[in-house]
Simulated assay, not measured.
Amino acid sequence: MPVTGSRRTLFRAAALALALSALVLTETAYAAKPVGSGKGANTEQSAGNDGKGIYAAARIQYSGSVAKGGGRGNVTSTDVNWTPPPCWYAPYLGAKDFKKEMSKHIDSQLNAPGMGGTAGAALGEAKRHYEDGYGWTDTPGYKDYNVENDGKGMFWAGVENPDEPDYLKRTSCTDLPFWVENGDAPPPQYEEAISPEILAALAYQHMQLPDTKVTLAPEANTKVNLPTWAWLDKAVFDEVQATAALNVPGFNIQATTTARPVSLKLEPGTKDAETYPASGECVLNADDSIGEPYVKGKADETPPCGIRYLRSSGDGTYKLRATITWDIAWTGTGGAGGDLPNGTFGNEQAVTVQEIQAVNR
């Protein structure tokens, strides 16, 4: 029997009620220990298997240079309107395990004190949907939780992005769990279904970029009106990759997000300074380095990348901020790929600026 309009709204209400009893998934913390170098911790999160069967609660795995502990990485998008997905639909349980969990949740909610009205009606509709084949035009219902097809596919459910601060966005994947056959794509109406593109955005969100400490000459103590040279060698400053993957029976996808440095922005920490070039942005050289190392005899020359402080820092220091802009793109399963917004990450380093002492004879 098809369901449209207000009926489908009831189904969404049922999904929200069930989410309150923890049916809708939330990602767990990372399980593996970090390894790696200054380019970020190499961390993996294993797929969950919490006793509900081999299809239970499939999780995204992260590897490469990703934030230690599984939190948000340090990359900041240059596009203020871009955000990672707040939630998505992903494989949850096989039919038999799903029947066990879903029927338990529905019955406990229906039997809860005070359950009635719209929420009670919605839960009753959900029970009919999974037990009696009650559905709507583009989403058929199921007989006995589709257990006759156990092992041939999985029920998919909403997953919240734990790093999304807006709770309402995080819980916006409110459709009831739906069945997907092994090897099939999710139905097209589920635009938030997990995909290589979503995985790429999540890899971007978890990406850990290396610290940005430029080499200076003079190194820490410079003089008023003396050009300070700044540079980054290619050897300490290279591309970074992070991979997100989802692997369950009949459904395996992944995406790798790659960040490549393109420019360095210098902010002196005081208005009493000039930057070289005037914009303060030093672009990549042909050998992928930035700036030019200082060599003896060039003290009075203008550096291709650097700063000239016009006033002493007194008893303190100036906080020089060096920010690298990264060009970010992704590739994924099936030849998919594309560009993501440029990212930035920067650090501050202390610079002491002294007056040049004149000697009178």
Rank of each mutant, 00 (worst) to 15 (best):
S6A: 15
T215M: 09
P34Y: 05
T26F: 04
V24C: 09
W136M: 04
A112I: 02
K213P: 00
F98R: 03
T256C: 04
V214I: 15
A31L: 06
V283P: 00
E27D: 12
P303K: 04
R59T: 11
S77H: 07
S263G: 05
T352C: 00
Q241F: 03
M154W: 07
Y130F: 13
W330H: 12
G141K: 02
S63F: 09
S313I: 02
Q241L: 09
A17Y: 00
D138W: 11
Y167E: 15
Q109I: 03
N347Q: 08
T43G: 02
G250P: 01
S313H: 10
P86F: 04
S77R: 03
L226G: 02
D50F: 13
A119H: 12
P177R: 10
N247P: 00
W136I: 10
G116M: 12
S108A: 09
D327L: 00
Q61E: 06
A67H: 05
W229P: 01
T317G: 05
E348L: 09
N342T: 05
V248T: 15
G38C: 08
Y55A: 01
E160V: 07
T78S: 08
T344H: 01
N247C: 04
G346N: 11
A286D: 14
A220R: 13
G306H: 04
K213A: 11
K143H: 13
K169Q: 12
A235K: 14
P210A: 12
L18F: 06
A185K: 15
R308N: 08
Y62M: 06
G133Y: 05
K319Q: 15
D211R: 14
T83A: 11
T9G: 12
E192W: 05
D315C: 07
G124L: 12
P2H: 03
P304F: 09
L226E: 14
D272F: 12
F345P: 11
N146V: 05
P341F: 14
A329M: 01
L10V: 01
K39A: 13
I253Y: 07
E160Q: 15
T302Q: 13
G116D: 08
K127A: 03
L209W: 04
W231N: 15
Y204W: 15
E148H: 01
L176N: 12
W330P: 00
N360S: 10
M207Q: 10
N161H: 13
A245D: 04
V262C: 06
Q357A: 07
V180R: 01
L226R: 11
P187D: 09
A235R: 07
L266K: 04
V75K: 02
K68L: 06
R170Y: 06
Q45D: 06
Y134L: 12
G40K: 01
P304N: 11
E27F: 01
F155P: 03
A29W: 09
E219N: 10
T28Y: 02
A14W: 02
K68I: 01
D50S: 11
I307E: 05
V359D: 10
A286F: 10
K52D: 12
I290W: 09
S195F: 04
Q354R: 14
K271N: 14
W326L: 09
A299E: 14
D300S: 14
K33V: 11
A112Y: 12
E192S: 13
A286Y: 07
V3L: 14
Q45R: 15
Q189E: 12
P268E: 03
